[in-house]
Amino acid sequence: MEKHIRLPLTQEDIAGLRAGDYVYLTGELYTARDAAHKRMAETLDAGGTLPFEIAGQTIYYMGPSPARQGHVIGSAGPTTSSRMDKYTPRLLDLGMKGMVGKGRRSSEVIAAMCRNQAVYFAAVGGAGALLSKCIKKTETVAYEDLGTEAIRRLTVEEFPVIVVIDAAGTDLYGNPPC
């Protein structure tokens, strides 16, 4: 089924999404990949607070190539999500509602998605030039020293993704549901 959804995701949106749905996202996404996840985990371990309010938000696992003059961003496709699995259940427990990446997730992540009612989307890996056209604005939120791995807030329009794991734990890649 094809759907157009405005971010941040609402509980109604999440409840209505099924693995296999083709979705166009419009609104704000936060980027974070390996190094940013590690730093967020260290911050939480030390009793600190995250550099943005994660409750209700969607994280895009992506580190862009630099923008040429006149462009908002460079190439901007998804990276492999499973590298973030170690850090993800904790973020879901803090209220994160969506993730955009590519590839499989661990059973721990899927269980945390069911527990917290969250959705995992895949964007097409290796289509970073195409996906960059849907990104209208970027702003660095934190960890600027990490370069491409900094946390950015992206404003996207009609950003194409596919629901791979829904809030019931149904996994398009074939893991058994929760």
């Binding site: 190439s75 496709g77 890996g125 290796g126 289509a127 970073g128 030039a129 195409l130």
Partner: peptide, 16 residues
């Protein structure tokens, strides 16, 4: 389509 955009607009095919 991604390959076309990459070539025409000088955007890397993939961010990696």
């Amino acid at each position: 389509e991604n390959l076309q955009i990459a070539a025409e607009e000088s955007i890397p095919i993939c961010q990696d």
